[in-house]
């Protein structure tokens, strides 16, 4: 693994690009296909790629498992929290109109942005957590057996 110089260089370039693309998909979901879930998957792919090329140990230095676990929970809370805010404002759960009562449709914009962010956070974290869990196991097949 240590010798794949080309892989390493290209990965370094790609990881940034993938993350940028993930952010685009995340925040541009209102206008084009995409949204929190897809962005989360893409973001996770960036980390997984980094992990595959530079070893699990190194990616865990960048994105430590404890943080991943917290983010898994945080995303769901963020989503539910958006709904709870509208409840406190005297509307029904997840009624984003509550966020800007004078202009419901911009309230909807903020609401959608917020919940998509929640989805994105949880999905990224869960996918990375699953990758860590699988990659952290001792493999039965060595590379040559493939």
């Amino acid at each position: 693994m240590r010798h794949h110089l080309i892989l390493r260089v290209i990965t370094k370039l790609l990881v940034g690009a993938i993350m940028l693309f993930a952010f685009y998909v995340q925040f541009h979901g209102d206008f084009s296909p995409g949204g929190g879930f897809q962005a989360g998957v893409i973001m996770a792919v960036a980390f997984i790629l980094y992990g595959l090329v530079f070893s699990l140990h190194n990616v865990q230095k960048v994105f430590p498992p404890w943080l991943v676990h917290k983010l898994v929970a945080l995303g769901v809370l963020f989503y539910a929290g958006t709904g709870i805010v509208s409840m406190f404002l005297g509307y029904t759960f997840l009624d984003y109109g509550a966020l800007v009562p004078s202009h419901p449709s911009s309230g909807q914009h903020y609401g959608i942005l917020a919940v998509e962010l929640g989805v994105g956070i949880t999905v990224t974290a869960v996918m990375v957590a699953i990758y860590y869990a699988f990659a952290g196991r001792p493999p039965r097949l060595s590379d040559e057996e493939w």
């Binding site: 676990h69 945080l74 539910a80 409840m87 029904t92």
Partner: peptide, 22 residues
């Protein structure tokens, strides 16, 4: 008025809270 949603929301929010507090 919010009781029906709270019925679900309380356990739903508790699960990630448990993980977050840890």
């Amino acid at each position: 008025d919010q009781l029906p949603i709270l019925q679900i929301l309380i356990p739903l929010v508790t699960a990630p809270l448990i993980v977050l507090i840890g």
